[in-house]
């Protein structure tokens, strides 16, 4: 399936993914950059907001600075029949920011993924033990990050 965006929407996406300029009138400045009226930009963003294409616009905070310095990806091997129930339990933890079911393969048996946050790794470890106890899944693994190899904001490549 090819991109379903109009040319105007593609231009807006291209400027939006660079982040909002730190000015008093960010929408006017972004609109100016792509040669449209501020209200045209806001109209598209309001439509995207209403139909769910835009989740939110806002500040991305540094978790180090706001006291949630550690995040850990934890993968779980959940019985396929129990994924719904276990998934809801794991997602209900306030320390969990992301929770997904993903496929397995012959060389990889884990099917449920959570990002767990805490002030330090001990706190994360404690939360993970509580999560295991709450959902009854004992087969899990914390995939500690040894090194960040690349990090850019989500990038939408145009025109393929």
């Amino acid at each position: 399936m090819e991109s379903i965006l109009s040319d105007l929407e593609k231009r807006i996406l291209a400027v939006l993914q660079k982040g909002l300029p730190l000015t008093l009138t960010p929408y006017r400045d972004m609109a100016g950059e792509i040669g449209i009226e501020p209200e045209q930009l806001l109209e598209v963003l309001r439509r995207w907001d209403a139909d769910g294409r835009l989740r939110r616009i806002g500040a991305v905070v540094s978790h180090v600075k706001v006291g949630l310095s550690v995040g850990s990806m934890v993968v779980w091997e959940v019985e396929p029949d129990l994924v719904g129930e276990v998934g809801r339990t794991l997602a209900s933890f306030s320390q969990v920011s992301h929770a997904y079911q993903r496929p397995t393969s012959p060389s990889w048996r884990f099917n449920f993924y959570t990002m767990v946050h805490g002030a330090d790794s001990d706190e994360v470890d404690r939360t993970v033990r509580q999560m295991s106890k709450a959902c009854g899944v004992k087969k899990y693994c914390q995939l500690h990050t040894k090194r960040e190899l690349k990090k850019v904001p989500p990038t939408y490549i145009m025109g393929r």
Partner: peptide, 26 residues
């Protein structure tokens, strides 16, 4: 083919967008 995994989301249970750029454990 066993050495590479393609793991698209099957079901989204939670996504707290405020954490999108969370730093991961060192």
């Amino acid at each position: 083919s066993d050495d590479i995994l393609n793991l698209p989301v099957e079901i989204l249970f939670k996504l707290d967008a405020r954490f999108n750029a969370a730093k991961t454990q060192k």
